[in-house]
Amino acid sequence: MTIVSNKGVILRAIPKEIPNVDEHFELVHRTIDIENLELEENEVVLKNIYLSLDPYLRIIIINNPESVGKIVVGYGLSKVVKTNNPSYKVGDLVYASTVNIGWEEYSHFKSDAAFTLKHVDKELLKDTPLNYHAAAGSIGQLVGQIAKIKGLKVVGSTGSDEKVDFLLNELKFDAAFNYKKGDLDKELSKHCPNGIDIFFDNVGGETLDIVIDHCNSFARIVICGLISQYNITNPEKKYKYKNINKILLKQIRMEGFTVGQYKGTDIEEDCKRDLAEWVRAVKIIYKENVYVGIENAAKGFVDMLNGKNLGKAVVKLSD
Score class of each variant (00 low, 15 high):
V4C: 10
S5Q: 15
S5L: 14
G8Q: 12
A13F: 06
P15F: 01
D22S: 07
F25V: 10
R30L: 12
T31W: 01
I32M: 11
I32T: 10
E41I: 11
N42C: 14
N42D: 15
V45Q: 14
V45C: 14
Y56E: 02
Y56S: 05
I59C: 07
I59K: 12
I62R: 13
P65Y: 04
E66Y: 12
V68W: 15
I71A: 03
Y75H: 12
K79Q: 15
T83C: 09
S87V: 01
V90W: 08
D92Q: 11
N100V: 04
W103F: 15
W103V: 08
E105H: 02
F109A: 13
K110R: 09
S111Q: 11
A113G: 09
A114D: 05
T116F: 05
V120Y: 11
D121C: 04
D121G: 03
E123G: 13
L124P: 00
L125G: 06
Y132R: 05
A135Y: 04
A136D: 10
A136P: 00
G137P: 11
I149E: 02
I149H: 05
G151C: 01
L152W: 07
T158L: 14
G159H: 09
E162F: 10
F166V: 10
L168W: 03
K172P: 01
K181W: 00
G182P: 00
D183S: 12
E187H: 04
E187Q: 10
L188Y: 05
L188S: 10
N194W: 03
D197A: 02
D201M: 01
V203L: 02
D209Q: 07
I210W: 07
I210D: 06
D213E: 14
H214G: 10
C215P: 00
S217C: 06
F218T: 09
R220Y: 12
V222G: 04
V222C: 14
I223V: 15
L226P: 00
S228N: 06
I232H: 08
P235C: 01
K238Y: 04
K238V: 06
Y241G: 08
I244D: 04
I244S: 05
K246F: 07
I247L: 13
L248S: 12
L248D: 08
Q251W: 02
M254S: 04
G256F: 01
V259I: 13
V259P: 00
G260N: 15
G260A: 10
G260M: 15
G264A: 04
E268Y: 08
C271V: 05
C271M: 07
K272Q: 11
R273E: 07
W278C: 10
V279F: 14
V279G: 02
R280L: 06
V282E: 10
I284R: 03
N289F: 00
V290Q: 00
V290D: 01
G293R: 05
G293Q: 06
I294S: 09
A297P: 00
A297C: 09
K299F: 04
G300S: 12
D303F: 13
N306R: 09
K308T: 03
S318E: 15
D319G: 09
